[in-house]
Design a protein around this nucleic acid. Structure first.
Lengths: 136, 136
DNA sequence: ATAATTGCAAATGCTTTGCTTGTGA
DNA sequence: TCACAAGCAAAGCATTTGCAATTAT
């Protein structure tokens, strides 16, 4: 199991400590979008001594270094995810909290167009869909 | 100057107190998207005794009654706005904090389509564009 | 009359920070 | 070596809440 985040730290010159390596590993291996508490729990399974303050500091450092992104979905705590090679947006199941990633080039283009029409250069955006499963 | 929110309270059977009437009035007259602190300041110009707790409670009540909406734009406190007759999304100037409202039917349709393709009924969404002014 | 609302201050939940000790390059 | 990081507990910030007094219907 590769530790993509650790590699990115080396690339970006982020100093690696045992704690950071472990947090990086746990995040790299996460297929979901864990919050700080959940990350703390996961790293604590390996090293009980890592404090939640360190998790907060590390996650922030990774974010500022452009290695992970933070999501503030409605009604939930801040969640983190490794920055993906390809941009995507999220659909959140309002019943289960389940998150599905998606990409839609048409929407992306329209966003840029809308911003430009309003006299802005699009720098960032946030698109979240909230829905309920259609049973069939 | 009409107090649209007060009327909606009556419609929805929300009990009206002096504090709520004033908060309703201030929100109805706001053309921007004030946060709780700002609302508190504005109502305090008329009635010094209204506490911030009441503003918090009222704003939450209005939100739960479907009268106002809350926005959690990146990097800012919660902001409130009267629910508009026509839905719109927001473009936030990352330099000034200025907010521009916009509507784009094509994006709306695509969102619905994306959700359906993923097996979901679209219940809500959040679309925010963050940009910088193009000087020309 | 009486159930709901207010103001106040204390409590909360998430996140940050000061300080001392420990450690990676 | 020595600037930077970790752990701990205390502080911060936005928001919520318990309680006694007040008020709308």
């Amino acid at each position: 199991m590769s530790n993509v985040i650790e590699n990115k730290c080396i690339e970006k010159g982020v100093r690696l400590t045992d704690q950071r390596k472990l947090i990086a590993k746990v995040m790299s291996e996460s297929q979901d979008h864990p919050d700080v508490d959940e990350l703390h729990k996961r790293v604590n399974k390996v090293d009980t001594k890592i404090s939640i303050a360190t998790v907060y500091r590390t996650v922030k450092l990774f974010e500022e270094s452009g290695i992970v992104t933070k999501h503030d979905f409605k009604g939930t705590k801040a969640r983190y995810e490794e920055i993906p090679q390809e941009h995507h947006d999220h659909l959140i199941d309002i019943n289960t909290g389940e998150i599905t990633e998606f990409v839609n080039e048409d929407i992306e283009k329209l966003q840029k167009k809308v911003a430009e029409k309003l006299g802005y250069k699009l720098v960032d955006h946030r698109l979240e869909l909230y829905g309920t499963k259609i049973k069939k």
